[in-house]
């Protein structure tokens, strides 16, 4: 099974619910257990909210790629944004986001261009690891 679901939403925090629901549905279809579905939902929330908070307008393009036991979520913001705060003591907003994603998913990353920000994450189901 290999599937891709695309979702485009305006940059508005109250629409992040759509990303969360999509994440949960995709994770469930990929065979994640309930804890893992919950983790992915929280991670996608963190991913989207961190992008939405740093921008005033534009669109979020979300792509959910799934295969048996794994999900990858790519979130691209087309629109103006400000770079997230990274504190010297390691406790800025961005550091917290990184730490939360570290706790919830296997891999995550971020690329920033002039008017484009791309964040992504990958999570594998424990039951399917090594298979």
């Amino acid at each position: 099974m290999n599937e891709a679901v695309e979702l485009i939403i305006p940059v508005q925090s109250d629409l992040v619910v759509l990303a969360r629901l999509t994440a949960a549905t995709v994770a469930s279809r990929a065979g994640f257990d309930v804890e893992e579905v919950e983790d992915l939902r929280l991670a996608v929330d963190e991913l989207c909210v961190s992008v939405v908070n740093g921008s005033g307008s534009g669109r979020l393009n979300l792509t959910f790629h799934s295969a048996e036991g794994s999900v990858e979520v790519i979130c691209v913001l087309d629109g103006p944004f400000t770079s997230p705060d990274q504190a010297e003591n390691g406790y800025g907003e961005r550091d917290l986001s990184v730490r939360i994603l570290d706790a919830l998913v296997d891999e995550h990353g971020e690329e920033m261009g002039d008017s484009r920000r791309r964040v992504w994450l990958r999570k594998r189901s424990l039951r399917h690891q090594g298979s």
Partner: peptide, 28 residues
């Protein structure tokens, strides 16, 4: 001996997977 999948929960509570996911989201 492991956390269940959404499908397994849906089977137990006699609801669709979609409803279970909806309820989980509402629980947030």
């Amino acid at each position: 001996g492991r956390p269940p999948t959404v499908a397994e929960i849906a089977g137990t509570v006699d609801a669709s997977e979609e409803s279970v996911l909806e309820a989980m989201e509402a629980g947030q």
